[in-house]
Amino acid sequence: MATHDTDAIIPLEVLYHTERNWLLAWLKRTLGCSQQAADLAQDTFVRLLARNQPISAQAPRALLARIARGLMVDHWRRDALQRAYLQTLALLPEANYPSPEVRLEALQCLERIAQLLDGLKPAVREAFLLYQLGGLTHTQVAEQLGVSSRTVERHVAHALLHCYRVCFE
């Protein structure tokens, strides 16, 4: 796209027509799948539309790439969660296998938990998950992570506060 005045605003329709092919090509190179690239390109523009904010003419490709990258991470996270969940289900006896509705609800719940924990430092997230979902005490988590019990307490408190803020913002 040509150089733009830094105060200029680009209408979404113009951005779509001028940069869609570039975004699609970038996503195809990144993902290696034209179908996924098309879906994510469309989702990127839908995200911009939902944002309902003016789009600066300064570095529009960087904005598109940043949004698309976030959507890719979300997609990969959902895929990883789904694979892990399905692998766990495969270990269950057939009699205990949940219905499709329950499986969908569980996957949606796992995705929401992942979104809640997004943005936490890995050490904080791991301490929180071990404590809350792993059923370990602060001391056990500390031993497993090689940190002090007080550090685990701070990590868990930080994660709880983060989740509270995300839920009630």
Rank of each mutant, 00 (worst) to 15 (best):
M1L: 12
T3F: 00
D7R: 08
A8F: 00
I9D: 04
P11I: 06
L12P: 00
L12E: 01
Y16A: 02
Y16F: 06
H17R: 07
H17T: 14
T18M: 02
E19P: 03
N21I: 05
L23E: 10
L24I: 03
L24P: 09
A25L: 04
K28A: 07
K28H: 14
R29L: 12
G32Q: 01
G32A: 06
Q35N: 02
Q36C: 12
A37R: 10
D43H: 11
V46I: 07
V46T: 12
L48Y: 08
A50F: 07
A50H: 01
R51D: 14
P54V: 09
S56K: 02
Q58W: 10
Q58M: 00
P60M: 14
R61Y: 05
A62N: 10
L63W: 04
L64C: 09
A65P: 06
A65C: 07
A65K: 14
R66Q: 12
I67Y: 05
I67M: 03
V73W: 11
R77V: 04
D79Q: 15
D79C: 07
Q82V: 02
R83W: 13
L86H: 10
L89K: 08
A90V: 05
E94R: 08
A95D: 15
Y97Q: 09
Y97H: 11
P100G: 09
E101H: 05
E101A: 15
V102M: 13
V102R: 04
L104P: 05
E105W: 03
E105D: 13
L107N: 03
Q108C: 02
E111I: 06
R112C: 04
R112S: 13
I113H: 14
I113D: 14
A114W: 03
Q115H: 05
L116D: 12
L116S: 02
L117G: 08
D118Y: 02
D118F: 04
D118R: 15
K121R: 11
A123I: 04
A123T: 12
V124H: 07
R125S: 11
E126G: 02
L130I: 00
G134A: 02
G134R: 04
G135F: 04
H138G: 08
T139H: 15
T139R: 14
Q140A: 13
V141I: 01
E143M: 09
E143T: 07
L145Y: 00
L145H: 01
S149Y: 02
V152S: 11
V152C: 07
R154L: 08
R154Y: 14
R154G: 03
H155D: 10
H155Q: 06
V156H: 09
V156I: 02
A157Y: 01
L160K: 12
C163I: 00
C163S: 02
V166A: 03
C167N: 12
F168S: 11
E169N: 11
E169R: 08
